[in-house]
């Protein structure tokens, strides 16, 4: 029974790893090897020069689009944690006459996935003149009702004794939040932060809509453009894909604990 279990898991694991193998194989092989009639398991001589070709090719703005993706993902992660964390704390802990009204307005947006409203959002963002602009890529994605709601739920369960001790020491709401609550909630911030980073890095529809000039492309838009183009260099495209996954593999290996926690938090309470 145990052996059957391990056999099933091993077969599944191999199947799951095949696409990663294909990205590397195709990226490092020559065009002839990829299109050869018989399957070559691994390129006979690894073509490291593919890297040099990829980064020097003016038709593939890989470096530029990677930098764009990185800037967008970092700004969205930091911005979301900052804005939604503050708002979540205010909603959880500061008694105020209209707090419930604001909370209802936040919760109401949970029913409307951002992807479905991309047309209306595009209308607003384009009339602000933010098409093909960093602001248009970053800012509309910062105001996640979902993240704020998760923060509120988390802060509701934060130990009150810690906050009261801070209050006795003369700290106001602001001081309590930054000196006591945030330092004691690092794990939660890390969990939501990793999820925000991965989501931002991999998002496609919004950048496709808003980044119309080549200079504003994120790496996903760049890859997609060459994927749907007529003439493409297959091995270069796969190498670009490998390069685009690399930052996330680093995140996965380094922060898996937080990632798993983030998935559990965002999945179930959603």
């Amino acid at each position: 029974m145990k052996a059957v279990r391990y056999l099933a898991l091993s077969v599944a694991a191999v199947v799951f790893l095949i696409p990663f193998y294909l990205v590397l194989r195709n990226g490092l092989a020559s065009e002839q090897e990829i299109t050869a009639p018989s399957w070559t398991f691994w390129p006979r001589s690894i073509r490291w020069e593919n890297f040099a070709l990829l980064f020097s090719d003016p038709a593939v703005p890989l470096v530029r689009s990677m930098v764009n993706s990185l800037v967008v993902a970092v700004l969205q992660t930091v911005g979301q944690l900052l804005l939604c964390g503050l708002a979540g704390y205010g909603l959880a802990r500061i008694p105020y006459r209209y707090a419930n009204v604001v909370l209802y307005l936040v919760v109401a947006t949970l029913m409307i996935p951002a992807a479905v409203t991309f047309v209306p959002t595009f209308v607003v963002v384009s009339s602000l003149g933010w098409v093909s602009d960093l602001r248009g890529l970053v800012i509309p994605g910062l105001f996640s009702g979902f993240t704020t709601f998760l923060f509120r739920q988390y802060f509701l369960g934060f130990p009150r004794e810690l906050e009261e001790a801070a209050r006795i020491d003369g700290l106001g709401h602001w001081g309590t939040y930054w000196r006591i609550v945030v330092p004691n909630s690092r794990g939660f911030f890390a969990a939501l932060g990793v999820i925000a980073f991965v989501t931002s890095w991999n998002q496609f529809l919004w950048p496709l809509v808003i980044a119309q000039d080549q200079d504003a492309w994120t790496v996903q838009v760049a890859l997609s453009t060459f994927l749907t183009a007529q003439s493409i260099n297959v091995s270069q495209l796969f190498l670009a894909a490998a390069v685009s996954i690399a930052p996330l593999v680093v995140v996965f290996v380094g922060m898996q604990r937080f990632l798993v926690r983030g998935v559990t938090e965002t999945g179930i309470k959603g």
Binding site: F16, V23, L223, L227, V249, V251
Partner: peptide, 18 residues
Amino acid sequence: FFLPTACSYVVASLVWKL
């Protein structure tokens, strides 16, 4: 089994289509 979450739909489309 969790690792594919690191891939975007664009990268997966590339592998599947090409």
